[in-house]
Computed example of a mutant assay.
Amino acid sequence: KKLYSCFLKKVASTAWKLLFLRLGSHIGDISIDDFRNLDYNDIPNTHFEQNVDETLAWFRLRNYMTFFITRHPFERLVSAFNDKLTIKSLKYKYMRILRTGEISFVQFVRYIIKEYKEGRGDQLDVHWLPQVKLCHPCQLNYDYIMRFETLANDSSRLLEYLQWDRKEDSKIKLSVQKSATQTEDTKVAFGQISQDEIKILKEIYKEDFTLLGYNPDLIVVDGKKTF
């Protein structure tokens, strides 16, 4: 079965890119960390290039199994901040945005709000651009939609379906053994910004909340309200 996915940044995209390559026998059994450390030229990146041929893109959408993975918008936002804008991340690509050493979460949120208010909400970086603006679930009829919060179980079901004809000891599995969350980080980060700022963030990510079925007022993990 051929797969076609909309990979969202900060929503298990690296883990599933590795699975794509392993399912197609393009790469061996390596860990996600080792995969991240591979030189760009050592990865068959043509599998993940955006389609420039519209006819081919529509053919694939009609004939391939399609899926994408969603994530609570605020969890994804904090994950992007931690990964791209903190000193510990060692990634300074975005440090020039505010031209101040290390960027705080408060500054990061105010930057996003400023861009939104000045009409540049659709031009935000792909790591924090709303998910529906990247994967367009209203326009595309995806076969399978998974949640980052239940990634292990959701991925296992899809992988089981894709590998129905493989022997059990040869089946490829997702290395994540439990649902991936970072709720505590999100609670701490959002405790630093005002209710007015949270209200605007809810407006910016309104379509994500509405169309992807997330509650903007709380995060639920294992049935418990945590935010």
Rank of each mutant, 00 (worst) to 15 (best):
F20W: 03
M65S: 07
T70Y: 01
P73G: 00
T70K: 11
D33S: 07
Y64L: 03
L77P: 06
H72E: 06
D53V: 06
T86H: 04
L61R: 14
E75C: 09
R22N: 12
Q50A: 06
H47T: 07
K88D: 03
S25F: 06
T14K: 01
A57M: 12
V52A: 14
L85G: 01
A15Y: 04
F20Q: 02
R22V: 06
F74Y: 06
D83F: 08
S79N: 08
S31H: 05
D83T: 09
L21T: 09
E49M: 05
S25V: 03
V52D: 11
F48K: 00
F59G: 06
N51H: 14
F59T: 01
D83P: 05
L38T: 01
R71V: 14
F68Q: 06
A15Q: 04
S79L: 15
H72S: 13
S31P: 02
K88T: 08
L77W: 02
G24E: 12
F59Q: 12
L85Q: 08
D29R: 01
S31R: 12
D33C: 00
I69G: 15
F35P: 00
D34E: 15
E75P: 13
T55P: 09
R36A: 07
L23F: 04
I69V: 14
R22C: 13
D29T: 06
R22M: 15
A80F: 02
F74T: 06
D33M: 04
Y40P: 10
F68I: 04
I32E: 15
S79C: 07
L61W: 10
R71G: 01
F48S: 02
R22S: 10
L18Y: 00
K17N: 12
R76V: 10
F20L: 05
I27E: 10
R76I: 11
W58H: 14
P44I: 01
T46M: 07
T55A: 14
F35M: 03
D33H: 13
T66E: 12
M65E: 10
I30H: 07
F48H: 05
T86Q: 02
D42H: 04
F20Y: 11
H26Y: 14
L23I: 06
A80E: 14
P73K: 05
F48N: 00
N37I: 01
T55C: 09
R71A: 10
R62N: 13
A15R: 02
S31W: 05
T66L: 13
N37F: 07
R22G: 03
T86K: 03
K88P: 03
Y40M: 11
I87L: 13
N63W: 12
E54V: 13
T55K: 11
S79D: 08
L18V: 02
I69P: 07
D29H: 11
N41R: 12
P73Y: 10
L38P: 01
F35K: 00
